[in-house]
Design a protein around this nucleic acid. Structure first.
Length: 274
DNA sequence: CGCGCTCCCTGGCCGC
DNA sequence: TGCGGCCAGGGAGCGC
């Protein structure tokens, strides 16, 4: 997906254009994505006014004045687009359209359908099955050396898989895990319990730094991801290792390598990372 | 029981 | 130009 910086960028874009607007009508063109849209979704959403847009992990949260919250997840290929052009007919893979007052339309489009749209009452949001198991937010004070060191000590899995585990720390996906590990000088396949306190300290700082830098750049656009206004992000131009197999390391000039961990490509510099 | 593998789905790209 | 194989930012579920 879209990892945390991309979701955060989408949230910021939505926030500018939809807060204070009433939802007139919802068009659910496909309900069966990763999980089905609740039967009462259209009923709960129609007529309500959007009061806030938030984010928890990679979930987009749209709060309404009737106590209902829309949860959106972009999966690998999802988009949440805001447009003022009334679409004559929906585009391919437009699954849900929200028609707001003032001629604004929010479109959830997701070719691969790994994403989802659902909703629940605000007062039970933190107990929602999709949210309750999630770990700490990486940009919060709760994500610190003590937290990650304790988790690392208790795990023998590769450190890259550890930081991508959404039950430990949320929002770090395949790209930013590789970039943060490069920045921290740590090999992605090191067993988590071999990472010493100083390395954890570096890693925590690098994860925060990489995510913040990416947010500033509007995220990374490789294929599908775009902001809510359709513009691309541009952090992909700042990748040190991701997608750079065979190219020279930006720091030392050695060849960037690729390996597969838990079925996913990992990029690293065998010289800069220990 | 913690972990890696496979699968969900579509589309783009590469090589033949 | 066409087609098969492979790959892709996520995550749940299932074996080992």
């Amino acid at each position: 997906m879209p990892e945390l910086p991309e979701v955060e960028t989408v949230c910021r874009g939505l926030r500018q254009h939809i807060i204070g607007r009433r939802i007139i009508e919802v068009d659910i063109r496909r309900s069966a994505m990763r999980i089905p849209i609740p039967d009462d979704f259209a009923e709960r959403v129609s007529g309500a006014t959007i009061t806030a847009v938030g984010r928890r992990a990679k979930y987009i949260l749209i709060y309404m004045d009737n106590g209902y919250v829309i949860l959106g997840h972009l999966g690998m290929s999802g988009k949440m687009l805001v447009t003022r052009d009334v679409p004559e007919e929906p585009a391919k893979h437009d699954h849900v359209l929200f028609f707001l007052e003032g001629g604004v339309t929010v479109i959830f489009n997701d070719p691969r359908r790994f994403g989802l749209i659902t909703g629940c009452s605000c007062d039970v949001l933190h107990e929602h099955p999709l949210l309750k198991m999630l770990g700490v937010e990486p940009l919060s004070a709760d994500f610190n050396v003590e937290h990650l060191f304790r988790k690392a000590q208790g795990s023998r899995k590769p450190v890259k898989n550890l930081i991508m585990d959404q039950a430990i720390v949320v929002g770090v996906g395949n790209i930013y895990a590789a970039e943060a590990l490069f920045s921290a000088g740590i090999l992605p396949d090191r067993s988590a319990n071999t990472i010493n306190n100083n390395e954890v300290k570096q890693l925590v700082a690098c994860i925060k730094c990489v995510l913040l830098s990416a947010i500033e750049s509007g995220g990374s656009t490789l294929r599908d991801y775009v902001r809510s206004d359709g513009r691309a992000g541009y952090f992909q131009h700042n990748f040190a290792v991701y997608g750079r197999e065979g190219k020279s390391c930006v720091r030392c000039g050695q060849v960037v390598r690729r390996m597969v961990q838990a079925g996913r490509s990992t990029f690293y510099c065998g010289s800069c990372q220990k």
